[in-house]
Design a protein around this nucleic acid. Structure first.
Lengths: 346, 346
DNA sequence: TTTTAGCACTTAGCACATTGGAGTGCTAAG
DNA sequence: CTTAGCACTCCAATGTGCTAAGTGCTAAAA
């Protein structure tokens, strides 16, 4: 168990280091602390904190910086989220104050805004569709045997994809297919839709089209698209600023990571608490072991839950960032509830 | 006028410098030249070439590197495009060997491929639609007063956008609007469509909808989208490698430039010759004055012309790059002609 | 007139030493 | 338990010397 003074020192070191980035020495620290003891005393305390694994040195005669566990302890026990700056809040609200036509625009804008506010890299994930119901399905013939498939879910999501149908499929067959889909699939949850597509639907459609597989692929494409296009990244370039390692190779890997939605899904997960802080090697993905990740869910009532996240250096000012992410998630949730409200009753 | 030997030296200096990046000294040069003269002679020649502004030094006692004018002279008079490597050609063809559903996929893939082959940043611009005819227009009601507008041009381009219609617009009015558009606009060139939208169409539509402006905005949105989404960028990150200036600010500006389609349109223009080389400050955009840009048109017969381009250091190996771009443009053109062929006769 | 050898001079880049400052750990006394 | 004092460590900045690669110039040779 830590003494009060040790807590005070640990807290101060984290705060000073995360705000100016320099290792904290005993003399500098003594001048900032509310208690007055000598620097030698501080040195002793720091030594014990280091022994406990909460602090470390960059070299044998340097000041102390927090270790991963030090940050962890700070975040878990010492930190109080900052109240978000009113100027930041104004910025968030004004950026949400547009009339967005599509939910994607709101969520994409959020990623940009969040990265701008933090100067880190930000991620946003729109509410997942798993529980959404398929509300409508359209096949629009575009001429030249091309067709656009459009899929509408009850939370307002619209996905579309154009494709070619084989020349031997006649329009009436297509009509029948649409009828099957409308009768059998519309109204179901997407997960159920997936299941039906794997079982009886191909048989039913097979009556009208010779090779239903190709046709159903397209259906799956649209569903897959709606699963992979949930992720938005803002401030990719900020990575260059806060990434200590100017090793181009790892930066490159990170950039490509940001384009792989499956990996992003793994990294961001769905935080169990409302706001979750992962520090350094606590992050499952090895590429991120020198960074910290703050993830938070936001809840759009019956329209599911999404995730926002920021990726920054382990030495980020946690209290400020946690405050900011906390405020942002409620603002975003509110904005999306508004959005759905507009759709539902229009 | 330059003597034969001066030409030989200039050519050699450009080639050596663009292949190993080191300033070329008189001794090194003498050992590479087919003629044998002493290094002192070379020095004299280099001095006169420098006086003419074709070479320059990095510091008072350094070897020579080509000046912008030196590169210019080399490109205009001395260079012979390399035959493209057969492995590169294989790669291009195999990447084109997929069945693409949309033209955008082909053009986007091209940007990636071109950047991979060159290790520079690549741009591709799909054929412009100006002369394309509006082949079809659909309004698909999605429920909840939402509608998807779909616009098909005769070169196979499909654009769509979802939007909300005011609650006071009834379905029949919408039907009438579609009829007006189909009767009056379908079959016209897009430029004519634009014109009609600015003149008589609003009046006609006004009969059915109270506030046609809002409605027509959407139409314009779709058209604008098809104008701005012509640009694809590949290998953004390569910029970090070949950009000498590790000045983060200018890199940042370049990245944002790549997202602004109007600026891209200015920079890439439509090259007057088939392949155009712009070196350093010859590029109109100031941000690019330390780079070189090779642009080339590709011609998809009656479906218009597009542009491909690579952005690299002024010290790029021009003969190789020009050869590569030349081969790529014919391959891409061929692939797109194939693509349209499939559409047209399906 | 052109070419060449020779020489004095310049510069970048590197290895190396020097120094100052910030910081530590330890000890012995308060 | 706290503190002053001291020896010690290490980084970072600065300066020095040296080398390699290059130049321009001059005067002699071709």
């Amino acid at each position: 168990m830590l003494t009060d003074r040790e807590l005070l020192i640990l807290k101060a070191i984290v705060q000073i280091y995360t705000s100016d980035g320099q290792p904290v020495g005993s003399k500098a620290l003594v001048s900032q602390l509310p208690i007055h003891v000598s620097s030698a005393t501080i040195r002793n305390e720091m030594a014990t904190l280091e022994e406990m694994g909460l602090l470390k040195k960059t070299h044998s005669s340097s000041g102390r910086i927090p270790s991963i566990q030090g940050y962890r302890y700070y975040v878990d026990h010492l930190l109080k989220p900052d109240k978000v700056q009113s100027s930041d809040l104004r910025q968030i609200r004004s950026s949400f104050n547009h009339q967005f036509q599509e939910i994607d625009d709101i969520v994409a804008e959020s990623a940009d805004m969040l990265s701008k506010l933090t100067s880190y890299t930000a991620f946003t994930v729109k509410p997942e569709l798993k529980d959404a119901k398929l509300e409508g399905f359209r096949l629009v013939p575009l001429g030249n045997h091309r067709v656009m498939a459009i899929l509408v879910t009850d939370n307002g999501d619209v996905q579309n994809k154009t494709f070619k149908v084989p020349t031997n499929v006649d329009p009436e067959a297509l009509e029948s297919v649409i009828r099957v889909i409308n009768d059998e699939l519309v109204g179901l949850k997407l997960s159920e839709v997936f299941q039906r597509l794997a079982t009886d639907i191909p048989i039913q459609i097979g009556k009208y089209i010779e090779t239903p597989e190709g046709f159903l692929d397209i259906f799956e494409d649209v569903l897959k698209k709606s699963a992979t296009e949930r992720f938005f990244v803002g401030g990719r370039l900020n990575l260059l600023d806060f990434s200590k390692q100017h090793d181009l190779g790892s930066i490159r890997s990170l950039y490509s990571l940001m384009n792989r939605s499956t990996d992003l899904a793994n990294v961001l997960g769905s935080p169990d608490q409302n706001i979750q802080v992962q520090i350094g090697n606590e992050i499952t993905n090895n590429l991120l072991k020198n960074y910290s990740l703050i993830t938070a869910t936001y809840d759009v009532d019956q329209h599911g839950k999404g995730v926002i996240a920021i990726l920054g250096p382990t030495s980020m000012p946690y209290s400020k960032m946690i405050g900011l992410v906390g405020a942002f998630r409620t603002e975003l949730a509110r904005r999306l509830i508004d959005y759905y409200h507009d759709i539902d009753d229009s």
